[in-house]
Amino acid sequence: MKKIKVLALVCLMFAGFGTIKSYAHCEIPCGIYDDAARVKMMYEHIQTIEKSMKMIVELSAAEKPDYNQLVRWVNNKEEHAKKLQEIATQYFMFQRVKLSDDPVMKAKNMKQLELLHKICVYAMKAKQSTNLEVIKNLNDTVHDFDHAYFSKDEHKH
């Protein structure tokens, strides 16, 4: 009986290690949204990805590369690109770009969805390389989304 309890406890412990944390905003909907803060976060993730890319290039070029630091910067780049994709999809696509039958709103939504898709694709490309052109594309696309999403009255950053 004691072996079964120990085995059950070990299984529960390992089950906890296999869980995936989600950092996305809720889908209740809770009604607590700060769209401008999310756009600002997108720019911050891009800056972090850029710094990571530069550090990867610098560390890789060293006579004796510090592989531990190199791996950490690669993981950092990957993590922030993923967070950028999560904001674009989980937050904006799934919760903030609303379905509408109004032709004007549909056109606005299509433009926003196109830009969000581009952000996700460029974030994917950032995971795949250290090409700083991707950073320019990300910054330009987030800028375009920022202006397509917020009306002139709402645009405060």
Rank of each mutant, 00 (worst) to 15 (best):
Y91C: 08
Y91G: 06
F92V: 01
F92C: 03
F92T: 02
F92W: 01
M93Q: 10
M93Y: 15
M93T: 14
M93P: 03
M93R: 11
M93H: 13
F94I: 11
F94G: 14
F94Q: 15
F94Y: 13
F94C: 14
F94P: 11
F94N: 09
Q95I: 09
Q95F: 03
Q95L: 10
R96H: 07
R96N: 07
V97P: 05
V97G: 06
V97F: 03
V97C: 05
V97K: 04
V97S: 05
V97E: 05
K98G: 03
K98N: 13
K98V: 11
K98E: 08
L99K: 12
S100D: 12
S100Q: 10
S100L: 13
S100K: 08
S100R: 12
S100P: 09
S100V: 08
S100Y: 11
D101Y: 10
D101W: 10
D101G: 14
D101R: 09
D101I: 13
D102W: 10
D102L: 05
D102R: 07
D102I: 04
D102M: 06
P103K: 15
P103A: 09
P103W: 06
P103H: 08
V104H: 06
V104C: 05
V104S: 06
V104I: 12
V104Y: 07
V104M: 06
V104Q: 12
V104W: 05
M105I: 11
M105T: 14
M105L: 11
M105P: 07
K106N: 02
K106I: 09
K106Y: 03
K106D: 02
K106G: 01
A107Q: 14
A107K: 15
A107L: 09
A107N: 10
K108M: 03
K108T: 05
N109E: 15
N109M: 12
N109C: 13
N109W: 06
N109F: 12
M110A: 14
M110E: 12
M110K: 15
K111R: 08
K111L: 09
K111V: 13
K111E: 10
K111A: 10
K111P: 04
Q112F: 02
Q112Y: 01
Q112P: 01
Q112R: 05
L113M: 09
E114L: 11
E114S: 15
E114P: 02
E114C: 08
L115C: 00
L115V: 01
L116E: 00
L116V: 01
L116R: 00
L116G: 01
L116H: 01
L116P: 00
L116D: 00
H117N: 13
H117A: 09
H117Y: 15
K118M: 06
K118P: 00
K118F: 04
K118E: 02
I119N: 01
I119P: 00
I119E: 00
I119A: 00
I119H: 01
C120K: 11
C120M: 11
C120G: 13
C120H: 07
C120V: 10
C120P: 03
V121L: 07
V121Y: 06
V121Q: 05
V121R: 05
V121N: 04
V121I: 13
Y122D: 06
Y122V: 02
Y122S: 02
Y122R: 03
Y122A: 03
A123I: 00
A123D: 01
A123E: 00
A123S: 02
M124Q: 15
K125L: 09
K125F: 14
